[in-house]
């Protein structure tokens, strides 16, 4: 179940090939992406994200306190 969520978040971020780095920080995933414009904000929110902040190719997904777990689940998929 958790892995499925990680998979869907990864897909919404443009897939594994789009990820340069994902770093969890307590409440958020800091994602450095090849291309920030492909991020599916609606999908991320549907997956429970409280918010998405974009600064070019750095996208922060606010997922709440489970950020650490989600990040390590995503790492497993990369």
């Amino acid at each position: 179940m958790a892995d499925e969520k990680a998979e869907k978040i990864l897909a919404a971020l443009g897939g594994a090939s789009n990820i340069i780095e994902i770093e969890p920080c307590i409440t958020r995933l800091r994602c450095e992406l090849e291309d920030g414009s492909v991020v599916d904000e609606k999908a991320l929110k549907a997956l429970g994200a409280h918010g998405v902040m974009r600064q070019g190719n750095v996208v922060q997904v606010i997922v709440g306190p489970e950020a650490d777990t989600i990040a390590s689940d995503i790492e497993d998929l990369l």
């Binding site: 409440t27 409280h50 918010g51 922060q60 606010i62 709440g64 306190p65």
Partner: peptide, 9 residues
């Protein structure tokens, strides 16, 4: 920081 300022969490 908007995450905190907007009480997102």
């Amino acid at each position: 920081d908007p995450v905190f300022a907007q009480a997102m969490v």
